[in-house]
Computed example of a mutant assay.
Amino acid sequence: MLAKRIIRTGKRYIGTPYVFGAPSNRKDIFDCSSFVRHVYGKHGIRLPRNSRQQFQVGQAIPLSWLREGDLLFFTTPKRKKKNGLERIGHVAIYLGNHTILHTSRNDKKVTITSLSPYWENVIVGARRVIT
């Protein structure tokens, strides 16, 4: 299953440092969207560079339909009062069991995080890019 392979690839980068605006060609540092773009790209799924652009790819799905490998999009404190695409400031890979694989300013590295009340309250939407 493609989702499991993508997740396995992403988990290889656990601990890789977070750097905001990390260049797309780097594998030793990531920001949230460069990480997602790199991991999916290793499996032939080409995604745009930033989270707002990535939110426009694939199929929008309700959160109740989430499955492994779907992308979850979040707002950030800096963007929460904005509208539409401008609210989006973070992207993560859904792992199932209420967990995500991502890299963020908070964790400062690629990590697995529980969808705690904090993360649940800042979800903007979900997209399925694996067909």
Rank of each mutant, 00 (worst) to 15 (best):
I88T: 02
T75F: 08
H98I: 08
T75W: 07
K82Q: 15
I93Y: 03
I112R: 00
L95M: 06
E86C: 09
V110N: 01
T75R: 08
S104R: 02
N83K: 15
T113S: 14
S114M: 11
K80I: 11
I100R: 00
K109P: 01
T99H: 12
S104Q: 05
R87E: 12
H98Y: 12
W119N: 03
S116F: 09
N83S: 14
T76K: 08
G96E: 02
G96C: 04
E86K: 15
N83Q: 14
S116Q: 09
K109Q: 10
N97E: 15
S104K: 03
R87D: 09
R105I: 08
W119F: 11
Y94L: 02
L85C: 07
N106C: 13
R79M: 11
L101S: 03
I88C: 04
N83M: 13
S116E: 11
A92Y: 02
L95I: 05
V91W: 01
T75A: 07
N106M: 14
H90T: 03
N97L: 13
L101F: 05
N97T: 11
K78C: 06
E86G: 10
Y94G: 00
T103H: 04
T99Q: 14
K108C: 07
Y94R: 00
R87Y: 10
N97H: 14
K80V: 12
T75H: 09
E86F: 13
G84I: 06
T99P: 04
A92S: 07
K109L: 06
V110L: 03
T111N: 11
S114W: 10
S104N: 06
K81W: 12
T113Y: 07
T75M: 08
G89L: 03
A92E: 02
R79H: 12
T103W: 02
L101C: 04
N97F: 09
H90G: 03
R79P: 05
L95C: 03
L115Y: 04
N83H: 14
I88M: 07
N106S: 15
I88E: 01
G96H: 02
Y94E: 02
E86S: 14
K82A: 15
K81N: 14
T113E: 10
G84S: 10
N106Q: 15
T76R: 11
K108A: 11
Y118D: 07
K109I: 04
H98W: 12
I100D: 01
K108P: 03
T99F: 06
T113I: 08
N97C: 11
T76F: 08
T113L: 10
I93G: 01
L85Q: 05
